[in-house]
Amino acid sequence: MWEIVHDGFVPPIDPENPTQIEYRNVHLNSQATSVLLSALSGDEYNKVMGVKVTKQIWDTLHIAHEGVDKVRKSKIDMLMARLNRFVILDGERMQEMFDRLMAIVGRIRGLGKYELNDHKVVKIMLEAYLPRNETLVTLI
């Protein structure tokens, strides 16, 4: 089914008399379309409503969420800059800081940057929590 989603399919030359392969591909396209559409929220469904070819649905959603590579990379760069400047806010509780940090990390990972492992996230969190004149080295 993934081949139909990723590569698309060619509709039958004679829809009234499809070959076995054409019939199989039409069936797989219908199944894949059904699976994709049933997994979408109302807003997402509205973006692809009326599209019958699974590849077109997939490509539309892909562009809407990841954009072209340049846009995705610039989003990652912007979020990484926010992460590098991350500090605890005045009056912010530890849980609030953690939630804010994990929202940024989740967005970065959602855009495909998986090198941001848990060790790095913990280090960022500890550095954000420390008083501004201390460093991790002084604590170790």
Rank of each mutant, 00 (worst) to 15 (best):
Q95H: 09
E44S: 11
L37N: 06
K70V: 10
D77L: 15
I108V: 10
N29T: 01
E22A: 08
E16V: 08
T19M: 10
N29V: 02
L111D: 01
L101H: 01
I63C: 04
H62C: 14
L126N: 02
T138C: 08
G8N: 08
L61H: 02
M125V: 06
M125G: 02
S38P: 00
K75I: 10
I124V: 11
I124N: 03
P18H: 09
S30P: 00
T54E: 05
R93E: 13
K47M: 14
M102N: 05
V48Q: 06
R82E: 10
L139Q: 08
V53H: 03
H62A: 15
E22S: 04
N17M: 15
N17L: 15
I13V: 08
I108Y: 01
N29P: 00
Q95R: 15
L111E: 04
K73M: 12
I63P: 00
P18T: 07
Y45T: 10
D118L: 13
T138L: 12
K120T: 08
R100W: 01
I88W: 01
D77Q: 14
A64Y: 03
M102P: 00
G42A: 14
T54M: 12
L40D: 01
M1Q: 04
G112P: 01
I21R: 11
T54N: 05
E127M: 14
H119E: 15
L83I: 07
G91A: 11
E96I: 12
V68H: 07
G110L: 12
K123N: 06
I57A: 04
L126M: 10
E92H: 02
I63R: 11
Y114Q: 15
E92K: 09
V51H: 03
R72Q: 11
K47S: 07
K47Y: 01
I21C: 02
H119G: 11
T54A: 14
H119Q: 14
L101M: 07
K52C: 03
V35C: 04
L111I: 06
N25P: 00
E44N: 13
D99N: 11
L79C: 01
E134G: 03
R93P: 00
K123V: 10
K73D: 05
D118G: 04
L126C: 02
L79Q: 03
I104L: 13
D90I: 14
I76R: 09
Q20H: 06
L139N: 03
R100D: 02
H62R: 15
N117W: 08
H6Q: 13
Y114I: 15
V5Q: 03
A128K: 05
D7Y: 04
E16S: 12
V35Q: 06
R107P: 00
S41K: 09
G91K: 12
K70C: 06
H119M: 15
D90P: 00
V122H: 05
W58A: 11
V137R: 10
A32T: 01
V71T: 09
V51Y: 03
R72S: 06
H27M: 15
D43A: 14
I104F: 01
H62Y: 11
N25W: 05
